[in-house]
Structure formats: C-alpha cells, structure tokens
Write a protein that binds this DNA or RNA. Sequence first.
RNA 1: GGCGCUAUCGUCUAACGGUUAGGACGGAGCCCUCUCAAGGCUCAAAUAGGGGUUCGAUUCCCCUUAGCGCUACCA
Length: 473
Amino acid sequence: MVRARFAPSPTGYLHIGSARTFIFNWLYVRKRQGTMVLRIDDTDVDRNTEASLQSIYDGLNWLALKWDELYRQSERLELHRQLAFRLLENGLAYRDFTPAIADPEEKAHGDGPWLCHPEMRALSKEESDRRAAAGEPFVIRYRVCREPAYEVNFTDEVYGPQTKLTADIEDFALLRSNGMPTYHLASCADDIDLKISHVIRGQDHLSNTFKHILIFQGAQAPLPRFAHLPLLIAPDGSKLSKRKHGPVVSVTTYRDYGFLPIAYINFLCLLGWSPKDNREHMTLYELMNAFSLEGVHRSNAVVNFSETDPIDPKALWLNSQHLRTMPVNALAPLVKKTLEEHGLAPYGDEAFFEHVVDTIRTRFSTLLDFASKGRAYFSDDYPIEPQALEKLNAPGARELLHELADRIASRAEFTEASVEADLRKLAEERGVKAGVLINASRAALTGQPVGPSAFAVFVCIGRERVIERLRKV
RNA sequence: GGCGCUAUCGUCUAACGGUUAGGACGGAGCCCUCUCAAGGCUCAAAUAGGGGUUCGAUUCCCCUUAGCGCUACCA
C-alpha cells in the first residue's frame, strides 16, 4: 500500500516548488491507488501563521487535487517527544546543556565542521538526569556514530545510491530546549507513525536524509522509499524567493492571472520531469498514467520569467492549449466564474453560452481574456479600440452597417449563413468589397479590429443586440 | 571551509556507446485567410573545459570550472 505525504510548513504562501512536490506525490499515489496524506509541519511556533496556512489551502484547493488524510504536527507533539526520549533512554541521544548560538552564521562559517560538544556527549546518565531535574535547559541531540569509517547508505529513487560517512554528520538536534521537536524528529516520527511508504520531496532534503535514516534506525522502524526532486530555480540560477522574485513564486499568482488549474499542473510537471515521448500538452489522466520517478530529472529547472513578464511563456502556451481543447462544458463554468468576478454575465442560456465560449476561446490564452478581450460578448458596455474605429470610419461604412441592420431585422432567419448572404448581397449591390463590410461589422459588434470570423461573431452577439449595435454606430 | 548533488539549443527537455544530436516554448520567415489568432511548412539555436576507457563517446571514469543544496534549538 503506497502512502505518500505532502508536508508544507505554514510560514508563507504556497510556493510553486511545493505545489509541484504535492502534484508529483499526488500523481504517484493516485496511479497506485494509494493514500495521499497532507501533513502540516507547524512545529516552528515562531514562524507559523494562520494566514499562511490559509493560503496553502487556497493554493491546494485551486489545483483541485484532493488528499485523503490530514494531520497537523502541532497536534502530535507528544508522539514526537516520546521518540526523542526513547532515543535518550536507549543511549542513542543525549542531552546537550550548551546554550544555543544566537547567530547561525557564526557556526556555519567557523573553521572546520561542527560535529558535537564532546563534553556533553560524554556526560554520564546520572549527571545528565541531575542537571535536567535541576531545571537546566537542554536540547536532545542524536548521538551519531563516531566509528572511523561508518557510513550511512540508501538508494534514492531519483538520485540513485547515496553514501555518507557518519564522520560528516553532526550530532543534530531532535528536541529543542523549549520542548518542541525539530523538523527532523517530527518529520521522521510522523512518517513512522503514519506508515509513510514513499517520501517524495525537494532535493534540498537529500543530504538531510542521512540524518533521517539514523532516526528511523534508532526507532527500529522500516525505511520508507526516498525520492528527491530537483529544485525550481530563477533564471539567474538562484533559488526562488518571495523577497527576491516577488509574486512569481506563489501559486495564487497564476490563479489570479487566469490560469486553468490543469494547465498549471501540466506546466509544473514538465519542470524536472518528462514523459520521454515528446508529449507536452497532457490531461490530468494522461499525466497520472505517464508519471514515474524514473522520468524525474536530477538537475534543477529554471522557471523562465523575466522582470517585464512574470509568466513563463511555456506556461501561457500550455494554458492556451488546454483552453481550446478541454471540453467546453468543463471550461464554461470557469469562464462564468471569471465573468462574475468582473461584473459580467453570459447572455442567453447555457447552450448559447457554451457556443460563445467555444467560438472565442481559440484566440484566448487565459481566463481573464474572456472578461477583457471577450467583453463585448457579455456586455453592451465595451470600448471601441482605435483600430476598430478606423474600420468604422471607412467611407460609407456606417451607412452600410445601418442598412445591414435593417436587412437583418427584416428577416426571421438569423444564422451565420443568412447573415453572410445578407452582407455579401449588400456589399455587391453597393459595389464595395465584402471585406470592408465584414471588418466594419466586427468592429461595430465587438469594438475590436480582430476576432473570430465575423459571421460567427454575429451569431455569438445575438440577433437583437446585433441590430442595436449596428444601428448605434 | 566541510560534505553532497548537478551540468544537451535562451528556456523546458529527448537521445539508457554508433542519430545529419530529436521535440516543444520563445524568435525569424512563408502558406492559409474577412481581421486576429489557431493550424501547416521552413530557418537560426546546444552536448561547460581538459584528460582518460573504447574501433567509436552527449552517454562510462577522473580532474577543473560553474551552479545548487546541507552544514540552526528553520523547515
């Protein structure tokens, strides 16, 4: 039974790299009919916020990929502490009474690797118990094996065989002096308790995995399979950060930009993974069937945004592909919602709305386009663009449009064919090129110089409004 | 500094020792056409550098370089 988890910490918005990790976990699990666990890793009480948690839910809900079980680490602290003290009892961990170093830089850039405080490691059980009983604050550290050539091994599903000497692993903290578990402890304790079978996460945890294996071993728990994912990075090669790169790192940005969830999922999947058969535009079902850890890359992938454009052009392209190929009845509700957010509403019934959406979607690339470029299809209040005005100002154009309105009004039939017949006949009678009248019609009906075939536009605008708009110019 | 990971067109990627190094986005051009898209076709564009191994290296090994990650009582 496959059980995978996505474990975000609520210290910010939902990062696009995190979203991709969630998606990969989800695809992996769903293909195998396994269980998707969402675990909120909120053991850092100082940095967690409810707003952040909410934005993570917002992002995940937008993607519309469901999880099966939900946990919050803050509700499972007893479990984490139990493991820490069990390791302490077993002698696999020890109390360290050394005060915390305030400045992390100091330790990181100190000379030589920091491994442990030998005095603390050597403290007798009695002495350790006595000082703890006396109320002296301590942190519990893992007692990493100091045998000369002892190594930890595992095979990563993506990166292959991994080895590290314990001599290069420091005595990392398990339990903080405030009684809260560290990430390593809480994560492993929960992975064990929740019977996680596959740990699929960012490559930034690849080297942490050695520590995690030590914890699993200390707890005498079976190891899950590990798979690490290459990171998503900025065009300059640096890691994506809110501070440096702004909104491009948050999934809600893409939602607000008018992306379809499936298109964005598709885009994210193509960063660091490939189906290896040249397919790019894929449905969720196709992604699910095609996804495998073997297809995951080992090198980081650049999200190709720029100062002037926050959107990767490929993401936009994929969105336009999905926009024009997905079933109209699946797209229509999303368009309707977008219209409502802009104070617009469809004319006519559902079938008519779907016809309009189907007609105009081929030249749109985001949902927002329906409310902007497509405004005239959903409102009588639309701007006339300068280039459209030029078409209307063509000699005799207005008079012809008025006359066309009369002819359309005088006959009951209103189809692309009937309108085309009326228009071409009128053009011929007046000795003007049909194209002039066609372009003027589009300009009058939509306020735009560009758009779908003009005759299709007539039908999409609707008979009454067509007559009204043609007479108004 | 220590340890680890990575390296194919601008970007995402394919090629599990033998290909004119393929596809996609983006760019340029052509076709189609009532406009604009879409679509079709064409072009430009890459194996980081140096050593090996091999009849033959994008592919395997080593070194260099570069980037990234970990090195916190953050996750």
